[in-house]
Each structure stands twice: as structure tokens, then as C-alpha cells.
């Protein structure tokens, strides 16, 4: 399927990205070319393949168990807050979301 300007605008909205006119045009042409390259995969017969097979092969290797619910290292609140937050702030500030 052809990648149109409308599709780019739609995914940009989903991805929370704002593109200017020129960026939009460039993305239409770049992404069209890349997606048609991705389409090569359609030639490959993947019937009867479980999409999760790759993960299940590693079952014996990777630690799937949850770790113990124990108190661990904690961080200093001030260090974790955004550098633009006011000194002594106890929370992250965002624009008003309710009237």
C-alpha cells in the first residue's frame, strides 16, 4: 500500500510527533521506500510458524523467575526529579490537564 501524507500524519499523531511540511514530504518518500523494502518479507513462507518460537527456545537460558519482593536500594527524590523542576519540589509538573 502506498504511504500517503495522510498516513504519515496519522502515525505521527500516534507517535506524538509533530512534523513540519518539509519533514512530512521527506518522510513520505523515505518511509515509502523503506516499507516497500520491508515488503520483501512477504515472499517468505512463514505458515505454521509460531511468532513466539524465538522466545520459547531460550526458556532454559534466561531467568524467567521474578525476584524476591525485598526492599532494595532506593534513590534520592531530588536526584530523580527533572532538572527543570523547582528546588525542593516533590513532584513532576506538567501543564494543567483539568479545568
Amino acid at each position: 500500500m502506498a504511504i500517503t501524507k495522510e498516513i504519515i500524519q496519522y502515525i505521527a499523531m500516534l507517535a506524538r510527533l509533530q512534523l513540519d511540511e518539509k519533514e512530512e514530504d521527506n518522510m513520505v518518500s523515505d518511509i515509502s521506500r523503506i516499507i516497500s523494502y520491508f515488503d520483501k518479507l512477504k515472499e517468505l513462507d512463514t505458515s505454521n510458524i509460531d511468532a513466539m518460537e524465538f522466545l520459547s527456545m531460550d526458556e532454559d537460558v534466561f531467568d524467567k523467575a521474578l525476584r524476591d519482593d525485598a526492599v532494595g536500594e532506593s534513590y534520592d527524590r531530588e536526584e530523580l526529579l527533572h532538572p527543570e523542576e523547582k528546588k525542593g519540589s516533590e513532584y513532576f509538573t506538567v501543564p494543567r490537564v483539568v479545568e
Partner: peptide, 12 residues
């Protein structure tokens, strides 16, 4: 068409 297909290709 893309993501799930690629996971299957990854298995192959």
C-alpha cells in the same frame, strides 16, 4: 503483515 511476520521470520 509486518511485526508479527518479522517475529516468524526471526524464528526461521
Amino acid at each position: 503483515a509486518y511485526y508479527k511476520k518479522a517475529l516468524k521470520a526471526r524464528a526461521l
